[in-house]
Design a protein around this nucleic acid. Structure first.
Lengths: 210, 210, 210, 210
DNA sequence: AATGAATGAGCGTTCATTCAT
DNA sequence: GATGAATGAACGCTCATTCAT
């Protein structure tokens, strides 16, 4: 019977993190009460505050951890020294595919990052935004390098281009994953692969060059 | 003399709407209390409830009105029967320009629609999403028609394309207008015209075809 | 029946003030919960916050109002231009008598000022202390004037003297009014008059000169 | 080697007592959490409860120990059989001096006894009060004896006199040691000796007989 | 002796909403 | 139309205390 009681510290924190994330994702940060989280986790209110200094800190922790994982995935891409546009397209395709796949496998995190955390308090939505700023920065670096390698036209404005492409991908993830009503229970009707390819193609050749 | 002081019903509702919108935009829906709104408007708590059944209803009203205006602006675009890709690009350019300009002139509305209302309760962010669903639908109609006119490749998936392009534009409006931290006081450093042209170009020809 | 409901704003605030004071006096500031106060007052929790910004503000309000009343009473004393030590003693006697009487008639206030508010948060016990600082200042002014009129020895240190006398009176009020255990329900066994006379005599002539 | 690290039970209890006293003195009994004390002491929450049954018990222990030490110091005074008023004054002077000096050397204890413990729960401030009741009792005994020895007028009310004098000294210690705002960091600007002499003189001869 | 995770009652405060006037 | 006092549920958070290890 005592074995049921004792839980490793790290497990308990993870458990609370998981429950909190799923509730934030389902109902939003503000509508999720700490009392809801602990009720679902089956612990007392005080326990939550043993692991997190505040509700806000728990959200920041979730976002920070998620950001790390997401960036780890994305940093695998664009590593090679491409020599042709086709190679670059292939790399981009892989990067986008990894992104869409990660999003698909981390629905709760993504909806918090993309949507539900956005209406939260400033520190939280700032943390969430930073994730995508990092992505945009990376995208921009890649474009600059590609232009230096003469893989892209010299007259393009890479800053705007990377903004456009990043927002295209991120926004599309939202509507692909959560549907028109941004519903956590929505089921995508297109595969991650198809989405990634379409996004890469559009980014490279536009609607006219399909 | 009282006629000078008398505020018409319609004016009072508009006043409350304006104040509420600016506060929602500044602090978010949840962090804005009805008491804050009426304090700034200089009326009593009860007055708010004379004009709106609830706080939620006031937000829905704001979004509904804003949606109407935005769609009115966007429906001006894509009206002509284009015959060439160049004409179509020009039209798209104008449409995007109208969109970016409207956004620039209605910052409060846009941040509510794009960001601050998103963390709000389900009915509200549903209403906000619908605005962009409408835009995406329109975009899709145009792509279909263009394909029928043989202005675009036949093998493209218009549904995905319109999703990608719409999200590109909408997401870009967010970061262009409110910066990386989604701050209502951020000042865009690129003109609406430049943004619109870049977006249209990218959408038509991709990064390779600049 | 509606007449039972409607209460003038000023009355309600006074009612809450009275209830809060009596509970602070009985149980101390920290041990008194806002919920206790409103329960006794028969109003809802929210009503308390309609009249006071916070629990602390309510205590400060009580102390501030009490301070005003106390100082009003004390400022009646020492007004005349005494010419002899005997007249000065008479005046002091009257002043002390007013002080002891006021204390007797405002037990709740006095225990808050003297004792129960002292363990409260800094702003509150600061406000309470200020009351007695004001009294000590006044006492010192009187001693200075008396010395100038040659009613008192020239070599005395008025600052220390006024500290000693003020503390004698204030401390004595505590133990006289609330007994050795500082109990709000304690009944003094000596009259205010007798206490005042004794204090004045001791202050003027010491234990040897009785 | 472990004997160098081992902390004796008695030491650990003393350490906790010291830390608790300094925190009670600094922040007050109610605002000091057990978690604060153990944090500063570098032990776990549970350890506190190994040495004390409760937080309240720890405060009572501190007060009880302090009371013992204080009374030990004060019981040195008034020991001789004085024959004249001058000798009695000298003894009183020494007693007061010992009191003021003890207070100066035990600031934390005194502020707890005099001020910060007063706002605490009834048992605690009862314990603190008892200290001063003991002092008053002793003072009264001395006055009675002095009157029996014909050193003082026969018509005086020794009960009231001892109350007045005791409160004078105790109250004065507060304001001398902690200033008008009862601040633990206040620095007295008059020596203990000067204060003691002034108090003794005032008690014996009053303001007129300086 | 000592740890530290866990408890749970309780607190101060907020705020959307109601309603008699 | 408008007021503003009143409500009461809910929330985030604290903290003295317990207890298996």
């Amino acid at each position: 019977m005592s074995s049921q009681r004792k839980i490793e510290t790290v497990e308990r924190k993870q458990q609370l993190t998981d429950v909190a994330l799923s509730q934030f994702a389902l109902n939003g940060y503000h509508k999720t009460a700490v009392s809801d989280v602990v009720k679902e986790a089956g612990v007392s209110q005080g326990t939550f505050y043993w692991y997190f200094r505040s509700k806000e800190e728990s959200a920041l922790y979730i976002i920070e951890e998620g950001k790390k994982e997401l960036l780890k995935v994305l940093e695998q891409g664009y590593r090679n020294e491409e020599a042709t546009v086709e190679e670059m397209l292939l790399e981009t395709n892989r990067l986008f595919y990894d992104f869409f796949t990660f999003a698909e496998e981390n629905r709760n995190l993504m909806i918090l990052l993309l949507i539900k955390g956005v209406g939260a308090d400033t520190p939280i939505h700032k943390a969430a935004s930073e994730t995508f700023t990092a992505i945009e920065k990376a995208s921009q670096r890649n474009l600059v390098r590609a232009r230096e390698l003469n893989l892209l036209p010299q007259n393009m404005d890479v800053s705007i281009q990377s903004t456009l492409i990043t927002n295209m991908v991120i926004g599309t993830i939202s509507s692909w994953l959560f549907g028109p009503n941004l519903d956590i229970n929505y089921k995508p009707d297109v595969s991650a692969e198809k989405m990634a390819t379409s996004a890469a193609m559009l980014g490279f050749y536009g609607i006219t060059g399909y």
